[in-house]
Simulated scan of single mutants.
Amino acid sequence: MSLASADALPGEFTFTDADFEALARLARSEFGLSLASSKKPLVYSRLARRLRARGLATFHDYMALLDRAEEAAERLELVSALTTNVTSFFREKHHFETLRTALIPELAAQKRIRIWSAGCSSGQEPFSIAMTLLHALPPGARDMRILATDIDPAILRKARAGRYPAEECETVPAEFRSRWLRPTPCEPELVEMGPELKALISFAELNLICDWPFAGPFDAIFCRNVAIYFDQETQQRLWSRFAEKLRAGGFLFIGHSERLAGPALPGFGTAGVTTYRKRAIPGPAQPT
């Protein structure tokens, strides 16, 4: 079936191929999201609830609503619906092992430490980083900060609160749980991150394809399972921008299904599974 056809998907709302093309263009231009035509049924199912919430009958009406300047909040609802906030404490444990054994021994000699969790979702990643750092490095003698950013303001509110169901915290090592996690007396089913962890993290809203209002440099950047939503051109541009923000020798941690490629590749060496280290001097091009 051609994308130019006017066939609509069966269902509650009219969703033509022209509607899908318009939505895909918006998603790419504003958020860098790549929506292949095969994702049309998935997009329908993800966005149908937004049409119900806004009292709309067709996706054409929804696109007209998204075009309004005053609907910035709805555009964020769009990107939140199209992406998946799946995360957990100490997800992809090999990254935290590399942080502990390869990077932290170097950081021990530094007075200033900066780590960026890009696409932090509901906060489990930056809190896992904070626990790993504080376990090895006393904070009093150094300027140590974690920047945690995400495009979704609703998910950032959850991250800032730092409260999670107790069963989600079972992947936190027992030693860390006893040291930094606190019960919430009014909500016994929840566990709260301790004040030492929260003090280490600054949460901020950020669209990764827009300007970044900070200079760096960072000792490490975690951007895991975010670039999978971008097309190849946007991914490669993102890797190059991360390289500019990393210090020489800094680490870049990416998702298990992502690979570093493009112009940034010669500037990195492999440092583990989906882990890369910025070279002091860019090396020869590597096979992708």
Rank of each mutant, 00 (worst) to 15 (best):
K245V: 02
P139R: 05
D231G: 03
A159L: 04
R182Y: 05
A166P: 13
S178P: 02
K198W: 11
S240L: 15
Q236F: 13
D231W: 06
K245Q: 02
D150I: 02
D211H: 08
G162P: 02
A159G: 03
E167T: 15
L197N: 04
Q235N: 14
A227Y: 11
C210H: 14
A136P: 11
T184H: 14
F222C: 00
D150N: 08
S178C: 07
D219T: 02
F218N: 01
L190Y: 06
P139C: 04
A199K: 13
P173K: 10
R163H: 05
V191P: 10
N207I: 03
S178L: 07
M144H: 09
E170C: 13
P183E: 04
L134Y: 09
C169K: 07
T184P: 11
I151T: 06
Q235D: 15
C186F: 15
V172R: 02
A220I: 03
I151S: 06
C186D: 14
P138R: 09
L200H: 01
R179Q: 12
P195M: 08
P138E: 06
I151F: 03
E170Y: 14
L190R: 08
F242Q: 04
I221Q: 00
F230A: 05
D150Y: 03
P188S: 07
L200N: 02
I221W: 00
E244Y: 02
F242R: 06
G140Y: 09
D150M: 03
L137C: 02
K245W: 00
V226L: 03
A243L: 05
T132I: 11
N207P: 06
A243H: 06
G140S: 07
C186T: 13
F242T: 05
A159Y: 05
C210R: 14
P183W: 07
C223A: 09
A141Q: 15
